[in-house]
């Protein structure tokens, strides 16, 4: 059997470059675009068919998901600041969800299984939280490194620990999403390869597993998008409220 990680390789389809950087369009990018277009298309379908007080089926789905994110933002960031951050956090949710789900289609690609991509987003969110923290609290923001109620002698130890736990946030955020997506797809790939390469008498077993794990993967796609979003809320909320 071939290397199960082989299908994570990316081959450029359209070669492009910008200021010396290679920005070729590959299958991963196209799959992401398809996913995002579907999300945007569905939203436009809801909006163009007219949002009504008595909603249609698609509008109910849109409202439930947006209401859900809205509640989350309000819970962690606070009702006053919520409208400012809501579009950003909702976009993160739908971006991650679309990228996770589009990868479930055989032959497409999950861009969130690329550590660079999740890393860029996690780093972006991290930098955003630092930015918000300094904008809101100025130099008091360094207080986040010293948790309240810590004795003075402990401070030299607490500061490195807090720095590590701060840095661990974006890393765990990105690694979690990347690892879950990669692992799920690898398992699916291996099982499917088994199903194909064994005779039908035994082959139905891994094939059945593939179907079951496919369902599980869809659930994980939602859960990971949810975790990514809720942690973004938690991190932003933390720097806004500062303990």
């Amino acid at each position: 059997m071939e290397n199960p990680l082989h299908h994570f390789e990316i081959h450029p389809i359209v070669h492009l470059s910008l200021m010396g950087f290679d920005i070729s369009i590959s299958k991963a990018v196209i799959a992401m675009w398809v996913g995002l277009s579907i999300v945007f298309g569905l939203f436009m379908l809801v909006v163009k068919s007219g949002v009504r007080l008595i909603p249609g089926k698609l509008q109910i789905v849109a409202e439930i998901s947006l209401g859900f994110i809205k509640d989350m933002v309000e819970e962690f960031i606070g009702e006053k600041e919520a409208p400012k951050y809501f579009p950003f956090i909702a976009t993160i949710f739908f971006f991650v969800l679309a990228c996770n789900l589009i990868g479930m289609i055989p032959g497409s690609y999950t861009i969130t299984s690329q550590l660079v991509v999740t890393g860029v987003f996690a780093t972006g969110i991290f930098i955003l939280t630092l930015f918000i923290g300094f904008a809101k609290h100025g130099l008091h923001f360094f207080g986040i490194l010293v948790p309240p109620g810590v004795p003075k002698i402990m401070i030299p130890i607490m500061i490195p620990i807090e720095i590590i736990s701060m840095i661990a946030r974006p890393v765990s955020l990105s690694v979690r999403l990347f690892a879950n997506m990669t692992a799920g797809h690898t398992i699916l790939y291996v099982l499917f390869g088994l199903a194909m390469s064994t005779p039908l008498m035994i082959g139905w077993l891994p094939f059945g597993f593939t179907v079951a794990i496919n369902g599980l993967e869809i659930a994980i796609a939602f859960i990971q998008a949810y975790i990514f979003t809720i942690l973004t809320c938690v991190y932003i909320g933390d720097v806004i409220h500062l303990h």
């Binding site: 661990a168 890393v171 975790i227 809720i230």
Partner: peptide, 25 residues
């Protein structure tokens, strides 16, 4: 249920990643 699930998924990486970061630094 979703909250519990998200916490379960979080805790595993939270611990490992912190040790990893410490080691790398």
């Amino acid at each position: 249920f979703r909250r519990g699930l998200s916490i379960a998924f979080r805790l595993g990486t939270e611990l490992t990643v912190a040790v990893m970061i410490g080691a790398v630094m």
